[in-house]
Write a protein that binds this DNA or RNA. Structure first.
Length: 457
RNA sequence: GUGGUUGUAGCUCAGCUGGUUAGAGCAUCAGAUUGUGGUUCUGAGGGUCGCGGGUUCGAAUCCCGUCUUCCACCCCA
Protein backbone atom coordinates (compact mmCIF):
# COMPACT_ATOMS: atom_id res chain seq x y z
CA UNK A 1 0.00 0.00 0.00
CA UNK A 2 1.41 3.32 -1.08
CA UNK A 3 1.56 5.92 1.62
CA UNK A 4 1.70 9.61 1.06
CA UNK A 5 5.20 10.96 1.59
CA UNK A 6 5.22 13.77 4.12
CA UNK A 7 7.42 15.50 6.65
CA UNK A 8 6.82 16.20 10.33
CA UNK A 9 5.51 19.65 11.06
CA UNK A 10 8.11 22.41 10.89
CA UNK A 11 10.85 20.35 9.18
CA UNK A 12 12.16 20.67 5.63
CA UNK A 13 14.10 18.85 2.93
CA UNK A 14 16.97 20.57 1.16
CA UNK A 15 17.47 19.96 -2.56
CA UNK A 16 20.90 20.21 -4.24
CA UNK A 17 20.10 23.82 -5.22
CA UNK A 18 19.20 24.73 -1.65
CA UNK A 19 22.23 22.91 -0.29
CA UNK A 20 24.56 24.86 -2.55
CA UNK A 21 23.20 28.07 -1.07
CA UNK A 22 23.18 26.79 2.49
CA UNK A 23 26.77 25.65 2.11
CA UNK A 24 27.65 29.11 0.91
CA UNK A 25 26.36 30.49 4.21
CA UNK A 26 27.97 27.78 6.34
CA UNK A 27 31.31 28.13 4.59
CA UNK A 28 31.32 31.90 4.98
CA UNK A 29 30.57 31.59 8.68
CA UNK A 30 33.11 28.82 9.22
CA UNK A 31 35.85 30.72 7.42
CA UNK A 32 35.41 33.70 9.72
CA UNK A 33 35.21 31.56 12.85
CA UNK A 34 38.47 29.83 11.97
CA UNK A 35 40.14 33.12 11.16
CA UNK A 36 39.72 34.13 14.79
CA UNK A 37 41.10 30.89 16.15
CA UNK A 38 37.91 29.01 17.02
CA UNK A 39 37.90 25.23 16.67
CA UNK A 40 34.98 22.99 15.77
CA UNK A 41 33.29 20.47 18.02
CA UNK A 42 30.12 18.41 17.67
CA UNK A 43 27.81 16.97 20.30
CA UNK A 44 24.99 14.41 19.99
CA UNK A 45 21.50 15.30 18.83
CA UNK A 46 20.23 13.83 22.10
CA UNK A 47 21.15 14.84 25.60
CA UNK A 48 19.93 13.52 28.92
CA UNK A 49 16.87 15.46 29.98
CA UNK A 50 18.64 16.27 33.23
CA UNK A 51 21.22 18.35 31.38
CA UNK A 52 18.55 20.13 29.32
CA UNK A 53 15.70 20.79 31.77
CA UNK A 54 15.64 23.99 33.77
CA UNK A 55 18.21 25.79 31.64
CA UNK A 56 15.82 27.69 29.41
CA UNK A 57 13.03 28.65 31.78
CA UNK A 58 9.54 27.14 31.91
CA UNK A 59 8.83 28.11 28.33
CA UNK A 60 11.94 26.33 27.12
CA UNK A 61 11.12 23.16 29.04
CA UNK A 62 7.76 23.02 27.28
CA UNK A 63 9.42 23.31 23.88
CA UNK A 64 11.83 20.42 24.44
CA UNK A 65 11.33 17.37 22.25
CA UNK A 66 11.43 14.34 24.49
CA UNK A 67 12.59 10.93 23.33
CA UNK A 68 10.68 7.90 24.57
CA UNK A 69 12.69 5.25 26.37
CA UNK A 70 13.42 2.16 24.34
CA UNK A 71 11.65 -1.15 24.80
CA UNK A 72 8.48 -1.56 26.80
CA UNK A 73 8.79 1.83 28.39
CA UNK A 74 5.37 1.61 30.03
CA UNK A 75 6.02 -1.53 32.07
CA UNK A 76 7.85 0.30 34.85
CA UNK A 77 5.35 3.15 35.14
CA UNK A 78 3.96 3.46 38.62
CA UNK A 79 0.41 4.68 38.55
CA UNK A 80 -0.84 6.19 41.78
CA UNK A 81 -4.43 6.92 42.68
CA UNK A 82 -4.40 10.40 41.18
CA UNK A 83 -5.19 10.75 37.51
CA UNK A 84 -2.28 10.41 35.13
CA UNK A 85 -0.98 13.62 33.58
CA UNK A 86 1.65 14.11 30.92
CA UNK A 87 3.69 16.01 33.45
CA UNK A 88 3.81 13.06 35.85
CA UNK A 89 4.22 10.43 33.18
CA UNK A 90 6.95 12.17 31.19
CA UNK A 91 9.89 11.63 33.58
CA UNK A 92 8.98 7.94 33.90
CA UNK A 93 8.95 7.16 30.20
CA UNK A 94 11.50 9.61 28.84
CA UNK A 95 15.00 10.37 29.97
CA UNK A 96 16.48 11.87 26.79
CA UNK A 97 15.61 14.91 24.72
CA UNK A 98 16.67 16.57 21.48
CA UNK A 99 19.00 19.49 22.03
CA UNK A 100 17.30 22.88 22.25
CA UNK A 101 20.40 24.96 21.56
CA UNK A 102 24.16 24.45 21.34
CA UNK A 103 25.20 26.47 24.38
CA UNK A 104 23.99 24.13 27.11
CA UNK A 105 25.44 21.00 25.48
CA UNK A 106 28.66 22.98 25.13
CA UNK A 107 28.66 23.81 28.84
CA UNK A 108 28.22 20.10 29.56
CA UNK A 109 31.09 19.37 27.17
CA UNK A 110 33.41 21.87 28.85
CA UNK A 111 32.78 20.44 32.30
CA UNK A 112 33.17 16.88 31.13
CA UNK A 113 36.50 17.50 29.39
CA UNK A 114 37.82 20.29 31.60
CA UNK A 115 41.11 18.53 32.19
CA UNK A 116 41.80 18.10 28.51
CA UNK A 117 40.95 21.64 27.42
CA UNK A 118 43.21 24.64 27.72
CA UNK A 119 41.46 27.85 28.64
CA UNK A 120 40.35 30.21 27.31
CA UNK A 121 38.69 27.62 25.11
CA UNK A 122 37.36 28.92 21.79
CA UNK A 123 35.04 26.66 19.88
CA UNK A 124 32.49 26.83 17.14
CA UNK A 125 29.68 24.38 16.53
CA UNK A 126 27.33 24.16 13.55
CA UNK A 127 24.52 21.68 14.10
CA UNK A 128 20.74 21.46 14.04
CA UNK A 129 18.63 22.11 17.13
CA UNK A 130 14.97 21.26 17.72
CA UNK A 131 12.14 23.15 19.35
CA UNK A 132 8.53 21.99 19.60
CA UNK A 133 7.31 25.47 18.78
CA UNK A 134 4.49 26.27 16.40
CA UNK A 135 6.09 26.96 13.05
CA UNK A 136 5.57 30.28 11.29
CA UNK A 137 7.55 32.77 9.26
CA UNK A 138 11.26 32.28 9.96
CA UNK A 139 10.45 29.76 12.65
CA UNK A 140 11.08 26.08 12.24
CA UNK A 141 11.03 23.04 14.50
CA UNK A 142 14.39 21.90 13.20
CA UNK A 143 16.94 24.56 12.36
CA UNK A 144 20.68 25.09 12.30
CA UNK A 145 22.59 27.23 14.73
CA UNK A 146 26.15 28.32 14.19
CA UNK A 147 27.58 28.99 17.64
CA UNK A 148 30.87 30.58 18.61
CA UNK A 149 31.76 30.74 22.26
CA UNK A 150 34.81 31.39 24.36
CA UNK A 151 34.87 30.10 27.94
CA UNK A 152 37.35 30.72 30.69
CA UNK A 153 37.95 34.40 30.04
CA UNK A 154 36.28 37.41 31.62
CA UNK A 155 37.78 39.94 29.23
CA UNK A 156 35.45 42.28 27.37
CA UNK A 157 37.81 41.82 24.45
CA UNK A 158 35.86 38.63 23.74
CA UNK A 159 32.61 40.54 23.43
CA UNK A 160 34.31 42.96 21.05
CA UNK A 161 35.67 40.06 19.02
CA UNK A 162 32.19 38.56 18.68
CA UNK A 163 30.91 41.85 17.32
CA UNK A 164 33.80 41.98 14.91
CA UNK A 165 33.15 38.44 13.66
CA UNK A 166 29.48 39.33 13.27
CA UNK A 167 30.51 42.29 11.16
CA UNK A 168 32.88 40.17 9.04
CA UNK A 169 30.28 37.50 8.38
CA UNK A 170 27.41 39.77 7.39
CA UNK A 171 29.78 41.89 5.39
CA UNK A 172 30.81 38.81 3.42
CA UNK A 173 27.16 37.80 2.97
CA UNK A 174 26.29 41.39 2.01
CA UNK A 175 23.51 41.68 4.57
CA UNK A 176 23.17 45.06 6.25
CA UNK A 177 22.70 44.56 9.96
CA UNK A 178 22.56 46.34 13.27
CA UNK A 179 24.08 44.70 16.34
CA UNK A 180 22.04 45.59 19.39
CA UNK A 181 23.85 45.35 22.66
CA UNK A 182 22.62 45.52 26.22
CA UNK A 183 23.77 44.25 29.58
CA UNK A 184 21.89 42.22 32.12
CA UNK A 185 23.67 44.05 34.92
CA UNK A 186 22.27 47.34 33.65
CA UNK A 187 18.81 45.82 33.56
CA UNK A 188 19.36 44.55 37.09
CA UNK A 189 20.47 48.03 38.10
CA UNK A 190 17.27 49.47 36.67
CA UNK A 191 15.16 46.93 38.52
CA UNK A 192 17.08 47.74 41.69
CA UNK A 193 16.68 51.48 41.16
CA UNK A 194 12.90 51.28 40.83
CA UNK A 195 12.78 49.13 43.94
CA UNK A 196 11.86 45.76 42.42
CA UNK A 197 15.08 43.77 41.96
CA UNK A 198 13.02 40.58 42.37
CA UNK A 199 10.95 41.35 39.27
CA UNK A 200 13.90 41.60 36.88
CA UNK A 201 12.56 39.03 34.42
CA UNK A 202 9.03 40.49 34.28
CA UNK A 203 10.41 43.98 33.82
CA UNK A 204 12.85 43.06 31.06
CA UNK A 205 10.33 40.96 29.17
CA UNK A 206 7.89 43.88 29.23
CA UNK A 207 10.54 46.41 28.19
CA UNK A 208 11.61 44.10 25.38
CA UNK A 209 8.26 44.70 23.69
CA UNK A 210 8.58 48.49 23.74
CA UNK A 211 9.09 49.06 20.02
CA UNK A 212 6.48 46.46 19.20
CA UNK A 213 3.50 47.40 21.38
CA UNK A 214 4.36 50.92 22.59
CA UNK A 215 4.92 52.55 25.92
CA UNK A 216 1.33 52.43 27.16
CA UNK A 217 0.89 48.70 26.66
CA UNK A 218 4.26 48.08 28.26
CA UNK A 219 3.09 49.98 31.31
CA UNK A 220 -0.18 48.05 31.29
CA UNK A 221 1.72 44.79 31.21
CA UNK A 222 3.91 45.93 34.09
CA UNK A 223 0.79 46.67 36.14
CA UNK A 224 -0.62 43.21 35.45
CA UNK A 225 2.69 41.76 36.57
CA UNK A 226 2.19 43.50 39.90
CA UNK A 227 4.66 46.36 39.58
CA UNK A 228 3.64 49.38 41.66
CA UNK A 229 2.79 52.60 39.86
CA UNK A 230 5.60 54.54 41.60
CA UNK A 231 8.06 51.98 40.31
CA UNK A 232 6.65 52.26 36.80
CA UNK A 233 6.86 56.05 37.14
CA UNK A 234 10.56 55.81 37.99
CA UNK A 235 11.08 53.59 34.97
CA UNK A 236 9.78 56.10 32.42
CA UNK A 237 12.96 58.20 32.01
CA UNK A 238 14.84 55.03 31.13
CA UNK A 239 12.30 54.05 28.49
CA UNK A 240 12.31 57.49 26.90
CA UNK A 241 16.07 57.81 26.87
CA UNK A 242 17.47 59.17 23.62
CA UNK A 243 20.84 59.77 22.02
CA UNK A 244 23.67 57.56 20.87
CA UNK A 245 25.14 54.72 22.88
CA UNK A 246 27.64 56.90 24.73
CA UNK A 247 25.06 59.51 25.62
CA UNK A 248 22.72 56.87 26.95
CA UNK A 249 25.47 55.38 29.10
CA UNK A 250 26.20 58.84 30.49
CA UNK A 251 22.56 59.54 31.24
CA UNK A 252 22.15 56.13 32.82
CA UNK A 253 25.05 56.77 35.12
CA UNK A 254 23.04 59.52 36.83
CA UNK A 255 20.12 57.16 37.36
CA UNK A 256 21.60 53.77 38.22
CA UNK A 257 25.24 54.70 38.83
CA UNK A 258 24.76 54.18 42.55
CA UNK A 259 23.44 50.64 42.30
CA UNK A 260 26.00 47.86 42.57
CA UNK A 261 25.10 45.89 39.46
CA UNK A 262 24.16 49.01 37.54
CA UNK A 263 27.55 50.63 37.95
CA UNK A 264 29.29 47.39 37.06
CA UNK A 265 27.20 47.03 33.95
CA UNK A 266 27.87 50.60 32.87
CA UNK A 267 31.57 50.10 33.40
CA UNK A 268 31.49 47.01 31.21
CA UNK A 269 29.54 48.70 28.45
CA UNK A 270 31.82 51.74 28.44
CA UNK A 271 34.84 49.50 28.07
CA UNK A 272 33.16 47.47 25.33
CA UNK A 273 32.30 50.59 23.36
CA UNK A 274 35.90 51.77 23.81
CA UNK A 275 37.00 48.60 22.06
CA UNK A 276 34.33 48.89 19.40
CA UNK A 277 35.37 52.45 18.59
CA UNK A 278 39.00 51.44 18.23
CA UNK A 279 37.93 48.60 15.91
CA UNK A 280 35.66 50.96 13.94
CA UNK A 281 32.66 48.82 14.80
CA UNK A 282 30.65 51.50 16.59
CA UNK A 283 28.75 52.15 13.35
CA UNK A 284 27.00 48.77 13.30
CA UNK A 285 26.66 48.35 17.07
CA UNK A 286 24.35 50.26 19.35
CA UNK A 287 23.24 50.17 22.95
CA UNK A 288 19.58 49.16 23.11
CA UNK A 289 18.10 49.24 26.60
CA UNK A 290 14.94 47.52 25.41
CA UNK A 291 16.88 44.42 24.45
CA UNK A 292 16.15 41.75 27.05
CA UNK A 293 16.53 38.26 25.55
CA UNK A 294 14.71 35.51 27.31
CA UNK A 295 17.39 32.95 27.90
CA UNK A 296 17.76 32.82 31.65
CA UNK A 297 21.45 32.10 31.86
CA UNK A 298 22.77 35.40 30.55
CA UNK A 299 24.46 37.55 33.19
CA UNK A 300 26.41 40.28 31.36
CA UNK A 301 26.41 41.56 27.81
CA UNK A 302 23.59 40.45 25.56
CA UNK A 303 23.53 40.68 21.78
CA UNK A 304 20.97 40.54 19.08
CA UNK A 305 21.46 41.08 15.35
CA UNK A 306 18.71 42.25 13.04
CA UNK A 307 18.74 42.59 9.27
CA UNK A 308 18.05 46.16 8.26
CA UNK A 309 16.31 45.49 4.94
CA UNK A 310 14.00 42.62 5.87
CA UNK A 311 11.37 42.41 8.59
CA UNK A 312 12.35 39.26 10.43
CA UNK A 313 13.05 38.20 13.98
CA UNK A 314 16.64 38.30 15.10
CA UNK A 315 19.03 36.38 12.86
CA UNK A 316 21.67 36.15 15.53
CA UNK A 317 21.72 36.29 19.32
CA UNK A 318 23.97 35.70 22.28
CA UNK A 319 25.52 36.98 25.42
CA UNK A 320 27.69 36.34 28.45
CA UNK A 321 26.89 33.65 30.98
CA UNK A 322 28.91 33.67 34.17
CA UNK A 323 27.86 30.39 35.65
CA UNK A 324 26.43 28.04 33.07
CA UNK A 325 28.98 25.39 33.94
CA UNK A 326 28.15 25.79 37.62
CA UNK A 327 25.11 23.51 37.45
CA UNK A 328 27.37 20.79 36.09
CA UNK A 329 29.76 21.17 39.00
CA UNK A 330 32.32 23.61 37.63
CA UNK A 331 31.72 27.05 39.18
CA UNK A 332 33.32 30.40 38.40
CA UNK A 333 33.92 29.84 34.71
CA UNK A 334 32.58 32.64 32.57
CA UNK A 335 31.74 32.28 28.92
CA UNK A 336 30.42 34.47 26.17
CA UNK A 337 29.07 33.48 22.79
CA UNK A 338 26.81 34.22 19.92
CA UNK A 339 24.66 32.08 17.69
CA UNK A 340 23.96 32.64 14.00
CA UNK A 341 20.59 31.36 12.79
CA UNK A 342 21.48 29.86 9.41
CA UNK A 343 17.89 29.27 8.33
CA UNK A 344 16.82 32.83 8.99
CA UNK A 345 19.95 34.17 7.31
CA UNK A 346 18.97 32.02 4.34
CA UNK A 347 15.47 33.51 4.30
CA UNK A 348 16.88 37.03 4.48
CA UNK A 349 19.30 36.39 1.62
CA UNK A 350 16.57 34.75 -0.43
CA UNK A 351 14.22 37.73 -0.12
CA UNK A 352 17.05 40.14 -0.94
CA UNK A 353 18.33 37.99 -3.82
CA UNK A 354 21.84 37.93 -2.41
CA UNK A 355 22.93 34.46 -3.49
CA UNK A 356 25.65 34.38 -6.15
CA UNK A 357 24.53 32.93 -9.49
CA UNK A 358 27.11 30.19 -9.80
CA UNK A 359 26.34 28.75 -6.38
CA UNK A 360 24.52 25.81 -7.97
CA UNK A 361 27.05 24.71 -10.61
CA UNK A 362 28.60 21.37 -9.77
CA UNK A 363 29.76 19.28 -12.71
CA UNK A 364 32.07 21.14 -15.10
CA UNK A 365 32.45 18.62 -17.91
CA UNK A 366 30.28 15.72 -19.08
CA UNK A 367 31.18 12.98 -21.57
CA UNK A 368 28.18 11.74 -23.51
CA UNK A 369 27.63 8.03 -23.91
CA UNK A 370 27.62 6.75 -27.50
CA UNK A 371 27.95 3.09 -26.63
CA UNK A 372 30.27 0.60 -24.97
CA UNK A 373 33.36 1.15 -27.15
CA UNK A 374 33.06 4.91 -27.12
CA UNK A 375 32.71 5.03 -23.33
CA UNK A 376 35.91 3.05 -22.92
CA UNK A 377 37.59 5.59 -25.17
CA UNK A 378 36.31 8.46 -22.96
CA UNK A 379 36.91 7.02 -19.50
CA UNK A 380 40.68 7.72 -19.21
CA UNK A 381 40.16 11.33 -20.25
CA UNK A 382 37.40 11.88 -17.68
CA UNK A 383 39.79 10.56 -15.04
CA UNK A 384 42.60 12.84 -16.17
CA UNK A 385 40.29 15.82 -15.79
CA UNK A 386 39.38 14.74 -12.27
CA UNK A 387 43.04 14.46 -11.39
CA UNK A 388 43.48 18.02 -12.61
CA UNK A 389 40.78 19.02 -10.14
CA UNK A 390 37.83 19.42 -12.49
CA UNK A 391 34.55 17.69 -11.75
CA UNK A 392 33.73 15.46 -14.66
CA UNK A 393 31.07 12.86 -15.24
CA UNK A 394 30.38 10.23 -17.86
CA UNK A 395 26.75 9.62 -18.74
CA UNK A 396 26.14 6.05 -17.58
CA UNK A 397 23.57 4.91 -20.12
CA UNK A 398 23.67 4.63 -23.88
CA UNK A 399 20.59 6.89 -24.09
CA UNK A 400 19.44 9.07 -26.93
CA UNK A 401 21.63 12.11 -27.42
CA UNK A 402 18.63 14.34 -26.93
CA UNK A 403 18.12 12.97 -23.46
CA UNK A 404 21.80 13.25 -22.59
CA UNK A 405 22.00 16.82 -23.84
CA UNK A 406 18.92 17.71 -21.87
CA UNK A 407 20.49 16.21 -18.76
CA UNK A 408 23.59 18.35 -19.25
CA UNK A 409 21.48 21.42 -19.87
CA UNK A 410 19.32 21.02 -16.78
CA UNK A 411 22.32 20.34 -14.59
CA UNK A 412 23.92 23.52 -15.93
CA UNK A 413 27.01 21.66 -17.09
CA UNK A 414 28.89 24.20 -19.22
CA UNK A 415 30.98 21.80 -21.30
CA UNK A 416 29.91 18.65 -23.18
CA UNK A 417 32.40 16.23 -24.73
CA UNK A 418 31.24 13.93 -27.49
CA UNK A 419 32.98 10.97 -29.05
CA UNK A 420 31.12 8.71 -31.44
CA UNK A 421 32.31 6.27 -34.02
CA UNK A 422 33.97 8.96 -36.18
CA UNK A 423 35.82 10.64 -33.32
CA UNK A 424 37.15 7.33 -32.01
CA UNK A 425 38.36 6.36 -35.48
CA UNK A 426 40.10 9.70 -35.97
CA UNK A 427 41.39 9.92 -32.39
CA UNK A 428 39.67 13.18 -31.56
CA UNK A 429 36.74 14.66 -29.60
CA UNK A 430 33.95 17.11 -30.28
CA UNK A 431 33.62 19.79 -27.60
CA UNK A 432 30.40 21.71 -27.13
CA UNK A 433 30.05 24.91 -25.15
CA UNK A 434 26.54 24.78 -23.73
CA UNK A 435 26.32 28.52 -23.10
CA UNK A 436 27.23 29.68 -26.60
CA UNK A 437 26.26 26.53 -28.48
CA UNK A 438 29.61 26.55 -30.29
CA UNK A 439 31.31 23.28 -31.16
CA UNK A 440 34.89 22.48 -32.04
CA UNK A 441 36.87 19.39 -32.80
CA UNK A 442 40.01 18.64 -30.83
CA UNK A 443 42.69 16.00 -31.26
CA UNK A 444 42.56 13.50 -28.41
CA UNK A 445 45.99 14.45 -27.04
CA UNK A 446 44.93 18.08 -26.96
CA UNK A 447 41.64 17.49 -25.10
CA UNK A 448 42.83 18.01 -21.53
CA UNK A 449 44.84 21.18 -22.21
CA UNK A 450 42.02 22.63 -24.30
CA UNK A 451 39.44 22.04 -21.55
CA UNK A 452 41.75 23.43 -18.87
CA UNK A 453 42.25 26.53 -20.99
CA UNK A 454 38.48 27.02 -21.31
CA UNK A 455 37.84 26.44 -17.61
CA UNK A 456 40.69 28.65 -16.34
CA UNK A 457 41.27 31.31 -18.95
C1' G B 1 -0.43 26.41 24.69
C1' U B 2 -4.43 30.52 22.58
C1' G B 3 -6.91 32.70 18.16
C1' G B 4 -7.42 32.72 12.89
C1' U B 5 -6.27 30.55 7.97
C1' U B 6 -5.26 26.77 4.22
C1' G B 7 -5.56 21.80 1.80
C1' U B 8 -8.07 19.64 -5.66
C1' A B 9 -2.35 16.11 -10.75
C1' G B 10 4.90 16.37 -9.20
C1' C B 11 4.23 22.29 -8.83
C1' U B 12 0.88 26.87 -9.16
C1' C B 13 -4.15 27.15 -9.10
C1' A B 14 -9.66 27.05 -11.56
C1' G B 15 -14.05 24.27 -10.27
C1' C B 16 -20.76 29.09 -9.57
C1' U B 17 -26.39 28.71 -4.77
C1' G B 18 -24.58 20.63 -3.83
C1' G B 19 -26.21 17.77 -9.91
C1' U B 20 -23.57 13.29 -15.38
C1' U B 21 -17.15 11.14 -16.78
C1' A B 22 -13.08 16.98 -11.73
C1' G B 23 -10.14 21.10 -15.48
C1' A B 24 -5.93 24.60 -17.05
C1' G B 25 -0.84 26.21 -17.11
C1' C B 26 3.94 24.53 -15.90
C1' A B 27 6.71 20.02 -15.20
C1' U B 28 7.34 14.69 -16.85
C1' C B 29 7.41 11.06 -20.85
C1' A B 30 7.00 9.97 -26.21
C1' G B 31 7.10 11.70 -31.27
C1' A B 32 8.17 15.62 -35.19
C1' U B 33 14.36 15.56 -35.37
C1' U B 34 18.35 7.66 -36.93
C1' G B 35 24.90 12.31 -33.68
C1' U B 36 22.93 17.59 -30.46
C1' G B 37 20.05 20.89 -25.03
C1' G B 38 17.76 25.63 -23.94
C1' U B 39 12.66 27.75 -28.83
C1' U B 40 8.31 25.53 -31.50
C1' C B 41 4.45 21.84 -32.78
C1' U B 42 1.72 17.04 -31.81
C1' G B 43 0.34 13.37 -28.40
C1' A B 44 0.36 10.51 -23.75
C1' G B 45 0.56 9.32 -18.62
C1' G B 46 -0.70 11.27 -13.97
C1' G B 47 -6.36 12.56 -8.99
C1' U B 48 -8.81 7.70 -2.41
C1' C B 49 -10.50 16.20 -4.30
C1' G B 50 -5.58 15.91 3.17
C1' C B 51 -7.86 11.94 6.40
C1' G B 52 -12.29 10.08 9.21
C1' G B 53 -17.36 10.61 10.15
C1' G B 54 -22.22 13.06 9.25
C1' U B 55 -26.40 15.53 6.29
C1' U B 56 -28.49 14.30 1.29
C1' C B 57 -31.60 10.66 -3.94
C1' G B 58 -26.68 12.86 -4.93
C1' A B 59 -20.78 16.08 -1.64
C1' A B 60 -14.45 18.58 -4.22
C1' U B 61 -18.73 21.91 -2.72
C1' C B 62 -22.66 21.91 3.45
C1' C B 63 -21.68 20.27 8.97
C1' C B 64 -18.38 17.96 12.88
C1' G B 65 -13.70 15.91 14.23
C1' U B 66 -8.57 15.28 13.03
C1' C B 67 -3.94 16.21 10.57
C1' U B 68 -1.29 19.75 7.61
C1' U B 69 -0.01 24.88 5.75
C1' C B 70 0.48 29.90 6.60
C1' C B 71 -0.38 34.11 10.06
C1' A B 72 -0.87 36.61 14.94
C1' C B 73 -0.06 35.99 20.35
C1' C B 74 3.42 33.59 23.90
C1' C B 75 8.38 32.81 23.17
C1' C B 76 12.49 32.68 20.03
C1' A B 77 17.53 31.64 15.60
Amino acid sequence: MAQKPALPKGTRDFSPELMARRDFIFNTIKTVFKRYGYQPIETPAMENLSTLLGKYGDEGDKLLFRVLNSGDFLSSVKQGDESLTAEKLSPQISEKGLRYDLTVPFARFVVQYRNELSFPFKRYQIQPVWRADRPQKGRYREFYQCDVDVVGSNSLLNEAELVQMTHDIFDALQIKVIVKINNRKILAGIAEYIGRPDALIDITVAIDKLDKIGIEQVNTELITKGIESEAIEKLQPVLFMEGNSREKLKALDKIIGQTISGSKGLEEMNLLFDFLEIMHLDKIAELDLTLARGLNYYTGAIFEVKALDVPMGSICGGGRYDDLTGVFGMPDVSGVGISFGADRIYDVMQTLNLFPENATASTQVIFLNFGAKEVIYCLPYANQLRQKGLSAEVFPDDAKLKKQMKYADQKHIPLVVMAGETEVAEQKFTLKNMLSGEQLEVAADQLITTILKIQNP
